[in-house]
């Protein structure tokens, strides 16, 4: 059974059809890249998948459950971790506390009023931070991290509830090219080792073609191609969108 199955997903903003009739599936242990020019509708897809936006039509199945209409916090409980295109972390807390809070939430301990939070799940948080290479920064304020480190922190937070599905919207934007590959290789290893399903968007084609098992290409809200690296490279419509040749040009 697929971890994530999407059928004929659709969303419009006013007159703009941001996503139209998108269908795909992600299997456990699979890395699926979603690529496309800016404005193609990738982030809108992500926002529907984690419950931030309600689809106009279509089905979202996560581990066999229809999640349409569930709020993000309920989708997260089903085992969906998410990172954002524009990082969202807790600025008044330390890097460790950011991860600890995700762990507290996973253990349903956020309504505790008495014992200090500082000691709860500290070791587990450190382990997650070490995994993404942030161990040395654990005590620093999240607000002062470099952008690439914020992306790492987001990954650590997203991994805190041992997700079965990871949604990563431009997880390496703001990183140096070598860091990008290292970060996504880490995700790749996790996917293989734990059977984690990963859907990610990415502009770095080395990452996409080097690490993804399969690639989806979106343009103007619609899926135009699906396949492995070779098939995508050879796909005429993809070439048209990215290289600007042919009738369907419009991307860049």
């Amino acid at each position: 059974m697929s971890v994530l199955r999407v059928e004929r997903l659709r969303k419009s903003f006013g007159g703009v059809q941001a996503v139209r009739d998108v269908s795909f599936a992600v299997e456990a242990g699979e890395m699926l890249a979603l690529i496309g020019p800016n404005g193609a509708g990738k982030s809108t897809c992500f926002n529907m998948l984690n419950g931030q936006l309600r689809p106009d039509a279509g089905h979202i199945d996560i581990a066999g459950r229809d999640t349409a209409g569930l709020p993000p916090r309920a989708v997260w409980r089903l085992g969906v971790g998410r990172t954002f295109q524009i990082t969202a972390t807790f600025a008044s807390m330390s890097v460790r506390e950011n991860v600890q809070l995700a762990l507290l939430s996973q253990h349903r301990e956020v309504w505790r009023l008495w014992r200090p939070a500082a000691a709860r799940h500290a070791a587990a948080a450190e382990a997650l931070l070490a995994q993404v290479g942030l161990a040395a920064q654990a005590g620093r304020a999240a607000a002062v991290l470099a952008y690439g480190d914020l992306k790492r922190l987001e990954l650590a937070i997203a991994l805190a509830n041992a997700p079965r599905l990871l949604l990563m919207d431009e997880p390496t934007a703001g990183m140096a090219p070598t860091e990008r590959v290292a970060q996504m290789r880490l995700v790749r290893d996790l996917a293989s080792a734990r059977g984690l399903a990963v859907l990610f968007t990415e502009h770095d084609m080395d990452v996409v073609f080097g690490l993804a098992d399969r690639i989806l290409v979106m343009n103007r809200g619609a899926l135009i191609a699906e396949g492995n690296g070779e098939a995508i490279r050879a796909h005429p419509e993809v070439r048209a969108v990215y290289l600007g040749t042919g009738a369907t040009s419009g991307g860049h």
Binding site: Q52, F84, A88, F90, S92, L101, E109, V110, R112, P116
Partner: peptide, 19 residues
């Protein structure tokens, strides 16, 4: 306590907190 951290988290970034 955890409640206080969760409250502060909701203020810092309600997007991340809900997520």
């Amino acid at each position: 306590a955890p409640f206080g951290h969760a409250l502060r988290a909701s203020r810092d970034s309600s997007l991340r907190a809900e997520a």
